[in-house]
Design a protein around this nucleic acid. Sequence first.
DNA 1: ATACTATTGTGAAATGATTCACAGCGTTAT
DNA 2: ATAACGCTGTGAATCATTTCACAATAGTAT
Lengths: 213, 213
Amino acid sequence: MPNRISDKTVARLSIYSRLLGGFRQQGKETIHSHDLALVAGVTPAQVRRDLMSVGGMGSPSKGYDVTELSESIEAFFGSQQRVNVALIGLGNIGRAILAYFHGRRPHLAIVAAFDIDSHRVDCVHNGCRCYPMHALGEIIEQQKISVGIIAVPVSAAQEVADTLVAHGIEGIMNFAPVPLRVPPNVYLEQVDITTSLETVAYFARQHTQEERR
Amino acid sequence: MPNRISDKTVARLSIYSRLLGGFRQQGKETIHSHDLALVAGVTPAQVRRDLMSVGGMGSPSKGYDVTELSESIEAFFGSQQRVNVALIGLGNIGRAILAYFHGRRPHLAIVAAFDIDSHRVDCVHNGCRCYPMHALGEIIEQQKISVGIIAVPVSAAQEVADTLVAHGIEGIMNFAPVPLRVPPNVYLEQVDITTSLETVAYFARQHTQEERR
DNA sequence: ATACTATTGTGAAATGATTCACAGCGTTAT
DNA sequence: ATAACGCTGTGAATCATTTCACAATAGTAT
């Protein structure tokens, strides 16, 4: 492998991509690393470093061509080939996620939802059919789903993860506030809202106390 | 300042705290760094390093006293003093967050919600009163709110953040998929679900391609 | 044409986070 | 009592990420 790209860089590229989409719509043709850095909340050097990963094609004094760069990053994310996503758990968080992604990213579609509650099963929420939990493995393989979003209670999260892994999932985004065990060949992203809020509260208090010093 | 603690460490301490709570309930009295590391999904060395921040009080061959350690971490997070939190935006994500935190963390309470939609205003969701948006500044100061959760659409996010900052907020957790500009004395946590999912999809695909090599 | 300016791309340095490795020390076994 | 074991706490080393700083270069002005 030539040079692996860090997850931090990938996350920032996603942000640049979204911002560039906005600039494109408002007719901006070129942009400097400085300007992109300003709206992205990072340093110009970081922008340039990140853009090297997608083969940065900027010109001095003009900067980067917005359309060209936007398309380069989309190509980097492989937007020509669709990634199918499953959402497991249709509670409050699950429904919020479903509503959130509905029709937003064409190449990143939630194609199936799952829940144990029979009231939710077989309904269509935001254009997405809800299947019973026991169909999980079968549907993953049928629909060639490679990414799973876990939005079930803590007590069920590891079991769901195991099922996903057993049926060949490649990446998991976990909203349940519990660290999951998955094999190293599966990419895992923990989105732990409780922990995040606790971290914010901690540093908020720190700042207050520093001011008092 | 003696030694600043990194946000990564703080986040992990929050996870340890939660896990220790579980161990405490099931009557476990002592625990080794190795065991805590296993369930937290990190290395034993990392656990010990993190616990140094709260004045690690482990004994060789017995390990750490579960109750004592649990209380040390809670004290570290300042659980004796309550942090008041405001939630701005009661759409899908806002309601999910509200339901999620309801009665879960006593020292970290969402005490007020805000929305522009008059249908939502003045209702009580999950024990939390919803105020109209124009009351935001006033209520923050009245209720001594120091942390804000932004769950409004992208178009309103920066304006809300500015209002929060203007009224003395110390920390912000932002769910709107746009980088916010806040002064350096305000701690900002971006929770960008789209970006996270895109990152998962990217690495999931990477793994698939590596296997093919 | 030539000089000047501002910006990119990128080695190199700095900073930050994690892991290693081992001294020191309770605990247990003999 | 003594030895042996295994774990903690931590300095040092490693690894990862960010920032610095500047050569190369395209555009612009003279």
